[in-house]
Design a protein around this nucleic acid. Structure first.
Lengths: 232, 232
DNA sequence: GGTTGAAAATGTGTCAACAGTTTTGAGGTG
DNA sequence: CACCTCAAAACTGTTGACACATTTTCAACC
């Protein structure tokens, strides 16, 4: 079934709506569609050389994962998270990733744990296998084995996170602290102490959230205003 | 935002797609669209007297909240939860409602707590204010103040839960036990013991999950086959 | 008799045009 | 000059027709 995913160069997104969804997502990631900006169906349709139908579907899907806000006949806008919304986002991550961490401590095999530790240390010492970036949180979440939690964290929430992640990812000292915390979490998992692993993961996520909040003091209205000017 | 939910009698679903979404949801709740059955766009369109467009949007939205499964050109089907999926669903509830409970213990005012206790006991003693059914879990979740968690639990997950809820809701002894557990949770909240409240809520949800699982041993394939026959 | 393969049937994906609503902005009025 | 009114513009919601993919049917063939 999955035999065309290897080296075809050009992928074949099964349906047009799927492809448009991805391309709009890229526009949002590249800040060409910044938070607060209007997402116009017909403009994007002509831009991508397709009808409004697929664009409409893509926007509805983005609306479903809360990346754009919309009301019945009003224009859709890229969601711009308030400080409150960012706090709530990270709280939800605390709840879900903490629990996933607890499950991982129960379910992972010794071999899996050791492999994860090895990958973590490899990524930290600089030499990560090129092409596959190491994502500690995703690895732990997937190890939980709960597909519903996996989909929620690696799907919907991940997109939102990614917009605000570059902020906290670049600071070197933060990176060093994150490695230490990741290592401690893995140690708790290896000791099969689910409660401790969950607690550590919660603290870790909460710290990351505070860091993001500190870097994004209050730019929701500014971004929206700026977006408005560019839209005209 | 939730101001038309009270006593208007007839709601005014702003757009056709919204209304169709609700009507398909009702069809699923009434088991006219049972788990495993095919959701046909054109059939529903003619049935509701609208074009395929709004129906298509509604189905995509149902797909977004995981009530129907679908692949590019294949037919959409009402999702039929396996035992594994039910387990995962309740685990996610454990994580989210537990955390919400902890937040509620921090944020609720004394007056809010007392009011909730009063409503719980009123509902238990039979005389609940007619028209507004008492939902303990929803009340606690909303008291958490985290809108993202609220939307997730009272929106997406709630619809899935509701399909399997009638099973566990009807048993009298279960109802009595649930009241006791609810009461204990509220007591922990009143003592401002967030950790205890979270722990109690997790146990409570887990117990409910086991109860549902026991009542639904293995009917996924049966339901799907039955659905197939009715579809022809 | 069972299997393979083509063609009809069914259903989803896409499109362009139409209808209804919101926004814009020009003109008039106090 | 500010405010209100109202029509044109812009945009979203909806529709029916057409294109493509899948599934099913059924007949020819091994």
């Amino acid at each position: 079934m999955d035999l065309q995913d290897a080296e075809t160069g050009e992928r074949r997104p099964e349906t047009l709506g799927e492809e448009i969804f991805g391309r709009i997502l890229d526009l949002i990631y590249s800040t060409e569609l910044a938070p607060g900006m209007v997402v116009n169906e017909s403009v994007l349709a002509t831009r991508f050389g397709v009808s409004r139908g697929p664009v409409r579907e893509a926007i509805r899907r983005l609306q479903g994962i809360q990346l754009v806000s919309r009301e019945p006949f009003l224009r859709a806008r890229v969601v711009s998270l308030s400080a409150q919304a960012i706090l709530e986002l990270f709280q939800m991550r605390e709840a879900l990733e903490g629990y996933a961490c607890r499950l991982a401590a129960q379910r992972m095999s010794e071999a899996e744990i050791d492999a994860l530790i090895a990958d973590l240390e490899a990524a930290h010492s600089g030499r990560q296998p090129e092409g596959a970036r190491f994502d500690f949180h995703e690895r732990v979440v997937r190890a939980s084995g709960n597909n519903r939690i996996i989909d929620s964290l690696c799907g919907d929430l991940y997109h939102l996170l990614r917009i605000y992640r570059r902020i906290s990812g670049a600071v070197p000292e933060r990176k060093e602290l994150a490695f230490t915390e990741h290592w401690q979490i893995l140690r708790a998992i290896k000791m099969r102490d689910g409660a401790l692993a969950e607690s550590l993961m919660r603290s870790h996520v909460e710290r990351a959230g505070r860091h993001v909040l500190a870097q994004v003091p209050e730019t929701p209205s500014i971004a929206a205003a700026d977006a408005e000017k560019r839209a005209s």
